[in-house]
Design a protein around this nucleic acid. Structure first.
Lengths: 249, 249
DNA sequence: TCGACACTTGCAGTTTTTTGCAAGAAAAAG
DNA sequence: CTTTTTCTTGCAAAAAACTGCAAGTGTCGA
């Protein structure tokens, strides 16, 4: 077998599976691991793939890692945000949760729309503060450094004093059977308070989170009025969420 | 499983759920917690996520605001901030006002110093939220878009419920005779409330503002305990402020 | 055809990387 | 303040990578 031919096969294999082990390649091509190693090293030098300890990965594969400098799954989140913004009516009193999806939504609020927005997320507040027609009220309290939101008993008390037309919420995990869950107990208490304070709760959630769960439960699915994903409402992935007194969007 | 592959999965999980525990990752990936810890540490070093005690959080949340390039008289403000920071003692409960000088001060807080900080300024809060040893409490309310601080009756009420060891304040205008004055009546009410809530008030003020005044009065000079300018305390420009029961710094 | 030469391939020994474990330190929780 | 969890550090075993070397292969010109 020619070296050239072998290297082409290696590239094919890598592109096909995104990642391969050197030992697998050696077995498949019936050459020694050293040979494969040398081939992979050359291909790496020629930018045909990326060599890593124990194997090789395709360039596209690692490229997704570079994207994380921005926001994960930004396109999906923008699609969700667009749908969410379309629900907004002039003069509404709404709440916007923290999290990147909700931040995207805040960004997309039409500049001319008059709104009263509550939030406890610093990034969301910063975004909304620049909008002249938005009346922005920050719900204070102890700021949790990881999520940049206020949280704790004080914040929950403040939430008991208000009532929103709509609350736009994110969640860590969501499952048709187990509802909305989080791994953080404090966050659950906070989200419960938000849901109590809102006439209608709208969940913004990318489809990748569907059917995942964690230890602490925020609420059941039927306590949510509308669930927005980046998918079409007819998508099969949403089947489990039908007939739950839930509007899909 | 390749290390590369594993790290990619960790990034996905973190970006997806915003926050994950090391132990959960270890279980999911079927490796020891130590390995996950090392991976997360590497990814943190590569700015793919942020490591926190017991887990990792996504960067989407926590991009700390870079200093906007052109702050007026930055060097002077940094000199003031440095003096202000030198007053801080371990465990103190302080308030930090909005404004660029106070923001500079927030930036300069030593990373290891344990503090409880109150503020109603979004930029200051964002700055402080990145400091692990600072217990940060945001005083909520309606956000005034020009200054990015909460203001109004609600905020003033909240201020009535707390008591600071030190309040670090800015002011629009200051004069030995007329005291601290502002252009904006609402701001005056707010600053009054801050001074009432603090045992000691520290004024941060560049010398350029000395001997200027405006319509609405916050307080007299003697209600301030310490005044910090970028000048040496012996400087002649400060002569009018001596013998006012005021410490110059 | 022969031999010089460059290139490739596999092997063995050494070095580096990865991984899990354990003990003490540090940090969070109660 | 005490208990529990997490972090750090050093260590050792295993896996992988690198290095030098020798054997094999093919090319080219005399």
């Amino acid at each position: 077998m020619l070296k050239e031919e072998r290297q082409q096969l290696i590239i094919n294999e890598v592109d096909l599976h995104n990642r391969v082990l050197l030992t697998d390649l050696a077995e498949k091509l019936d050459v020694s691991v050293d040979t494969v190693r040398r081939d992979v090293k050359e291909l790496d030098a020629g930018s045909k793939l990326r060599k890593v300890h124990g194997g090789a990965v395709s360039l596209g594969y690692t490229h997704t890692a570079a994207r994380s400098s921005n926001i994960y799954a930004l396109n999906e989140k923008m699609a969700i945000a667009e749908k969410a913004v379309s629900m907004l009516k002039e003069g509404a009193v709404i709440f916007i949760d923290g999290g990147t999806t909700c931040l995207e939504m805040a960004r997309m609020i039409p500049p001319k729309l008059k709104l009263t927005c509550f939030t406890f997320s610093l990034p969301v507040a910063l975004q909304l503060a620049g909008m002249p027609h938005v009346d922005l009220i920050f719900i204070g309290g102890r700021i949790s450094p990881e999520s940049m939101i206020s949280n704790g008993a004080y914040t929950i008390q403040r939430l008991a004093e208000v009532r929103f037309d709509y609350a736009f919420l994110g969640t860590g995990y969501v499952d048709a059977l187990h509802g909305l869950t989080e791994f953080d107990w404090d966050v659950v208490q906070l989200k419960k308070a938000v849901i109590r304070a809102s006439k209608k709760a709208v969940l913004l959630c990318i489809s990748e989170k569907l059917n995942s769960q964690h230890r602490f439960k925020t609420c059941d699915i039927h306590e949510i009025n509308t669930m927005i994903t980046e998918l079409s409402p007819e998508n099969n992935l949403l089947n489990l969420f039908r007939n739950q007194d839930l509007r899909l969007m």
